[in-house]
Design a protein around this nucleic acid. Structure first.
Length: 127
DNA sequence: ATCATGACATGTT
DNA sequence: TAACATGCCATGA
């Protein structure tokens, strides 16, 4: 919704078609929407959601972690459990419920992982 | 192994 | 501008 431009619209489309009992990570959604690194942006879009036809609770964080839900993570977890997702404490088996990622058109963009990944080079300093 | 911190990438609001 | 419902990698404890 929001800007209804490409990315946001694509994200909504993707989320809308996540079947019950399955989940997708923010990163997966971003990837399917054509912006592999825009996981955070996806979260933001979800935040701005205002429609019931978008099952935002099926979008979770990586590693089988819950992720956020407007400050109500408990509800998110409950909704997922209600759909059959078995939680193990605060996490669940992502591999078992994650939907297949099918990237739709998008801008390939350099894979460079544009991350200089700041080699900390820490000389054992006390943190 | 798990959690925390530091850095950078990406797009909204 | 700076957050923010993130991800991934590296390192430290």
């Amino acid at each position: 919704v929001a800007t209804a431009d490409g990315f946001a619209a694509r994200v909504l489309s993707v989320v809308r078609r996540i079947p019950p009992g399955r989940v997708a990570t923010y990163g997966d959604v971003a990837r399917m929407a054509g912006r592999p690194r825009a996981a955070r942006a996806v979260g933001n879009i979800m935040k701005g959601l205002s429609r019931p036809d978008i099952p935002a609770h099926r979008v979770v964080a990586a590693g089988g972690r819950l992720g956020g839900y407007g400050g109500n993570e408990a509800l998110k977890r409950a909704l997922l459990q209600a759909e059959g997702v078995a939680f193990r404490g605060t996490r669940f088996n992502l591999n078992a419920y994650r939907i297949a990622v099918v990237r739709t058109g998008g801008t390939p963009r350099s894979r460079g992982r544009g991350n200089a990944r700041a080699r900390p080079s820490r000389l054992k300093t006390r943190r």
